[in-house]
Design a binder for these strands. Structure first.
Length: 308
RNA sequence: CGCGGGGUAGAGCAAUUGGUAGCUCGUCGGGCUCAUAACCCGGAGGUUGCAGGUUCAAGUCCUGUCCCCGCAA
């Protein structure tokens, strides 16, 4: 089966790799244009999907837009029977969706219809979900709203960060797209419509989500730290007046009458901060001051004593 | 050549106008204690990222270079 693969970040790599390893003819790969990355020289960095495709000798296309007809012409020449999209980062216009005889399918990292959009993995953790998963679906014009082919769930462990979950779901997606591809080739792929009334959105993350609101519960703040890991991260200025990024923390059962955001203890164990409910505090274990490296709370306190 | 911050003891930080490189933690030894991530006493550990330059004198000023971090993506 001739397949065109569209994807950009690490998440999409196992899917591409799986399809290629399974012997499908991946005749072309679309990825986002290389973006300047790097502090000093603004070097262009190939996307993870591009790098993998090139190492396999697959032609790579990186159009700025899919809507000027160029991409459509390229696709017509590639003659894919199926287009597989995984975190490509762009909407596909209808003329592309309708091009491949077997359609376009998408690997999405949530249990659709929940968490449609750009950052489903992060939002599942931010919202304190106990489980999430991967959905393979036929693509529709509307964002992440297509009929479901396959769906599999996985529990989110209490300490898991978005980064860890990201890796797990990428692997899961890589396995599931193979199953789905086989079903599509055999003509047995399911088409289960989503319950659109239960749809929720998982919009792009932004730096504005970083500051911690200490009136929330310790668990909610912990979810924020895990869900925004490693980017944009959770931060607070209650320690030094400057925004310090919180890399690691834990919820500790400890009663306090101190107001939200008050530092009630600072020791080698960590920095305990009062939150919005009295029974628990958030213990900061690992942090990073502006301009500095990330370090343990104990190391930070060695150079920045806090009187409690 | 996009903007900015920073390299000082194992870790984290200080060091006025250039003038004996200090502090906290850790570490080692000893003491106290039923005990401890607690406390007390003592010790070790630095060519201040690297290379040049200015100076009687450079962690500090100048030039170059390597590396780290934040913004931006």
């Amino acid at each position: 089966m001739r397949i065109v693969f569209m994807g950009t970040p690490d998440f999409a790599v196992p899917s591409l790799e799986g399809l290629a390893e399974a012997g499908y003819q991946v005749v072309g790969v679309f990825s986002q244009p290389d973006r300047p990355v790097g502090r000093h020289h603004n070097k262009l960095q190939p996307t993870p999907v591009k790098a993998r495709a090139l190492s396999r000798g697959i032609p790579v296309y990186q159009p700025e837009t899919l809507r000027d007809g160029t991409a459509l012409a390229v696709l017509r020449e590639l003659e894919p029977e199926l287009i597989v999209v995984a975190a490509y980062g762009r909407f596909l216009p209808d003329e592309i969706l309708n091009l491949p005889p077997k359609g376009c399918v998408n690997v999405h990292s949530s249990l659709l219809p929940k968490y449609r959009g750009a950052a489903p993995i992060n939002w599942a953790i931010l919202k304190g979900e106990a489980e999430t998963g991967v959905t393979i679906m036929h693509m529709a014009s509307e964002l992440d709203a297509g009929d479901i082919i396959l769906q599999r769930s996985t529990p989110i462990s209490p300490e898991e960060t978005a980064e860890m979950l990201y890796g797990r779901l990428a692997e899961l997606g890589g396995k599931m797209i193979l199953e789905a591809a086989a079903q599509i080739e055999a003509g047995t792929a399911a088409r289960t419509p989503q319950d659109h009334t239960k749809a929720t959105l998982a919009p792009m993350l932004s730096k504005e989500m970083s500051p911690v609101d200490w009136t929330r519960s310790a668990q909610e703040i912990f979810n924020q730290i895990r869900g925004l890991y490693p980017w944009p991260g959770a931060s607070t200025d209650i320690i030094s007046g400057e925004p310090i990024k919180i890399w690691g923390a834990q919820v500790v059962e400890k009663h306090t009458d101190a107001g939200p955001g008050a530092i009630i203890a600072a020791s080698k164990q960590g920095i305990d901060v009062a939150c919005g409910e009295l029974q628990h505090v958030l213990r900061i274990l690992e942090l990073q001051p502006p301009g500095g490296k990330r370090m343990t709370a104990a190391a930070y306190l060695a150079g920045h004593p806090i009187q409690v």
